[in-house]
């Protein structure tokens, strides 16, 4: 029998992805492409928000959209009606995107001539929080019907985002949603996160959201 020896590796499994994400982030910086990773649960209004964002910023930025889904191209079709460059990514059952998949999506989309790319991540509040995609900023949408208790249930997601959109505020009257309680819960996990109440349906709050993007893009360019 062979004599085995123990070889210590002591490496975090996420290290490979983290390295690839850092690389992608600096390449995008060099090329002047601001990548926003947009996460949420299914049905929170991500696609409608993306369409509204294109309407608000399309005149001043050249925008591209990466639509990630397990299957289908319904979201890509909806978004392509805005005239923005869009590509549908199928994760084939994977519940999150990592840096390598994001890179493949970006090269499929073609980032040449683009200033701003939104990565519409898979609808999922758990795994998407754990894999760095290489994005310049991370955003999340929580919709009013989901409830103000979500930061308690999915802390990792709320702790890593730069901005939280609270969508469907037009439906506030039908749900017991306490905006102040939500703000407190988010602040406890992530004091730096900006919270912006919006309605992608009526357009309320979208101006503040567009301003946030403008400011972040400017800061990112200057950094």
């Amino acid at each position: 029998m062979d004599a085995f020896k123990v070889l210590e590796i002591k490496k975090s499994v996420y290290e490979g992805n983290d390295g690839r994400a850092r690389e992608l982030r600096s390449e995008l910086k060099r090329d002047g492409v601001f990548l926003l990773n947009l996460m949420s649960s299914p049905g929170s209004g991500k696609t409608t928000t993306v369409v509204r964002t294109i309407e608000a910023l399309g005149a001043e930025m050249r925008i591209g959209i990466l639509e990630a889904d397990l299957d289908s191209d319904v979201d890509a079709r909806t978004v392509s009606r805005t005239g923005a460059r869009v590509i549908q990514l199928h994760s084939g059952g994977m519940c999150h995107l990592d840096a390598e998949m994001t890179r493949q999506g970006l090269s499929g989309l073609g980032t040449e001539g683009l200033d701003f790319v939104i990565l519409e991540n898979i609808g999922n509040l758990i795994c998407t929080a754990e894999f760095d995609t290489g994005a310049s900023r991370n955003a999340m949408i929580l919709s009013v019907p989901e409830g103000d208790d979500k930061p308690l249930k999915y802390p990792a997601m709320f702790a890593m985002v730069d901005v939280l959109l609270v969508n469907k505020i037009d439906a506030m009257g039908f749900f017991d949603f306490d905006m102040e309680a939500l703000r407190e819960r988010v602040a406890r996990l992530n004091p730096d996160a900006r919270v912006i109440p919006v309605s992608a349906k009526t357009g309320e709050g979208m101006a503040e959201w567009a301003d946030w993007i403008r400011t972040e893009v400017k800061e990112w360019r200057a950094s």
Binding site: A3, K5, V6, L7, E8, I9, K10, K11, S12, V13
Partner: peptide, 11 residues
């Protein structure tokens, strides 16, 4: 929260 490759037994 860890997910680590600790070691291998090898020759």
């Amino acid at each position: 929260k860890e997910f680590m490759i600790k070691e291998i037994l090898a020759c």
